[in-house]
Design a protein around this nucleic acid. Structure first.
Lengths: 353, 353
DNA sequence: CTGAAAGCGCTTACAG
DNA sequence: CTGAAAGCGCTTACAG
């Protein structure tokens, strides 16, 4: 107990070869609180206190300890701390598809607030597979203090099960008894359909996303309600995947549906459809109006630029993490008011053909 | 030592309130190898062996132990394992800007190979700030087995310092003594300039990226060499930031330079410039040809679609992780042959004006 | 204000 | 083939 790290130091005996590249044997074990204790002549417990609860001990010794720590280049070993405390200092962030630009801002915002509070984030994606999502979530749970599930494709009871082992919050999803942060799709959809109606559209389609997506249900449901209320006809058209390919693939069905406008599950799908229209010489918005969802990177790039409904995803990421932090601290916060979506009028809608 | 988790179990005394939401007190401590030992009547060491070195003990008892583990829903505690072994089972992945779609494929590929080998990845970005990069790298190092630095903005010696504490490999960067995986920009640039020359361009510009980017140096250098060799004039134009905004902001300088084509540091910058040209009524590729770099998501979206040089980033991510795994195992692999870039001809180049 | 001791959940020589 | 013991680097009651 008086010394430490000797086990790993034996590697130091090896000669590094000609190359300057550090080999494993060359790396020396990082300093521990025992090294600091020895250097300053206090006990390890005192070192621990000096570093963790500033002001709780003699100012002089605290100084000496801090100086020694700095001199040695000491960094706490998070694994070692995690054992007695049960706190890992890391948060898990699980999204449905890392490849969807929609999650950019969310991930970055989440990262920002996490690092502000000294937490680190483990980031993973489930590639739209519920099985992979469950497996990943379980694996992550062993090494994080809590989990943020974004756009989960799991069933409610699976999420509840996960939540019974560690704190968990969902984004873009509502599950009984689980803290959630959700955008309100209504304002955006309402404005969008309003514009469509004003432009004379009477027959519209919803180009659907994954059935396992709660958000997909929300979007369809509200579009449906409003369309019915305003006496527009509305049909749901399936897509294979919530990607550009999925949108392109749905082109034939969209065309066959004889509608003058389509609201897509997300921008990826909308972009795929838009491109396919162009390739087939179908004028957008002349013959068909298209509205996306999310306002991802690149939505403004095509001609016509994609009209869409923006999701407050950065805010959702920030709130999600804050919420998770509260849950971890044992607080029992209520769901906050939903974050409003906003209609972003660009160039892909026009008068009904 | 005969029982465990009692410390945390005390929380179980608290009543959960009316809500069905699990509170921290409701969560019971996960089972440990001691629980399995008690259930099967063997020692914890035996449980550890049964779970970690299959086939090393009596088949019967191994079975019983595995069954008990499954029954209890046992998951190993990675933190607890990390302490005696020094292996955390996680890898750090640090990119310069999470918001750049260029890193999508790389991140996903890295994630895939990591999880194939049972490793988990911690993902972070430095937002183009060297200070933040260094701080983040140091923080990450305390909890990972190795670090993958993608597009590092650090100085060579800083990277070497980091490498002396834990295994580290760089992507898109070459540093003395540090394992690296790098794409070869030459094939792509050569083809690109060839096309430009054939199309009659004699005066071209390179719209530069961050000075701290090694890749930026490579791109400029090779473009320069080839241009000189082929008797084209070439100038370097600075940009503020390697983003769409940076590209847009450089528009005035590009125009003033009186060139007929520009090769941009990356697609983000190229896209920004392209849009600005459109907004200012400058015809692309009629009056100006534009070539990007990376072939990111969305590069094909605008009209004209962006001609670019594709980086093999997914492959780079995969190789980077494999390389890192080897380094962690103490292997001393040599750098492999650089991955070739490829010219992707779309619509943004044309005959010299 | 500070130290000695026990414990977090594992792993791994060392004995038998 | 299996167990008892020591140790990984911390934290935190418990004493003084």
């Amino acid at each position: 107990m008086t010394t430490s790290g000797n086990k790993r130091e034996r590697g130091g005996m090896e000669q590094s070869d000609a190359a300057t590249r550090p080999r494993n044997g060359d790396r020396k074990a990082p300093p521990t609180i025992y090294d600091i204790a020895r250097l300053t002549g206090v006990s390890p417990s005192t070192v621990s206190r000096a570093l963790n609860k500033p002001g709780r001990l003699n100012a002089q010794t605290e100084r000496r300890i801090r100086d020694a720590a700095a001199e040695l280049g000491y960094r706490i070993n998070p694994m070692a701390r995690a054992l007695p405390t049960g706190k890992t200092g890391t948060l898990g962030l699980l999204v449905s598809d890392i490849t969807n630009p929609a999650y950019f801002d969310l991930v970055r915002a989440a990262e920002r607030v996490a690092s502000e509070t000294g937490m680190t984030i483990v980031f993973a994606d489930s590639q739209e597979s519920p099985e992979l999502e469950r497996a990943t979530a379980e694996r992550l749970q062993t090494s994080v203090d809590g989990l943020l599930l974004v756009g989960s494709r799991l069933e409610d009871h699976q999420i509840q099960d996960l939540s019974s082992v560690k704190p968990l919050v969902v984004v873009n999803r509502l599950v009984e008894g689980i803290p959630a942060v959700i955008p309100d799709v209504r304002p955006g959809i309402t404005t969008a359909l309003e514009r469509l109606r004003e432009a004379g559209h009477r027959r519209i389609a919803y180009l659907a996303g994954p059935e396992a997506s709660w958000m997909n249900g929300q979007r369809w449901q509200h579009a449906f309600e409003i369309a019915v209320q305003w006496d527009m006809s509305i049909v749901e058209i399936k897509s294979n995947a919530p990607t550009r390919e999925g949108g392109a693939e749905a082109f034939g069905r969209v065309k066959a549906a004889d509608v003058s406008a389509v609201l897509a599950y997300n921008d990826l799908v909308a972009l795929g459809l838009l491109r396919e229209c162009r390739d087939h010489g179908l004028d957008v918005p002349g013959r068909l109006s298209i509205i996306g969802f999310d306002d991802i990177f690149g939505a403004d790039l095509p001609t016509p630029a994609l009209t869409t409904i923006r999701m407050p995803l950065a805010l959702a990421g920030e709130r999600g993490i804050r919420r998770l932090l509260i849950e971890i601290d044992g607080g029992a916060s209520e769901n906050e008011a939903a974050l409003p979506t906003v209609f972003v009028d660009r160039e892909s809608i026009g008068p009904a053909a």
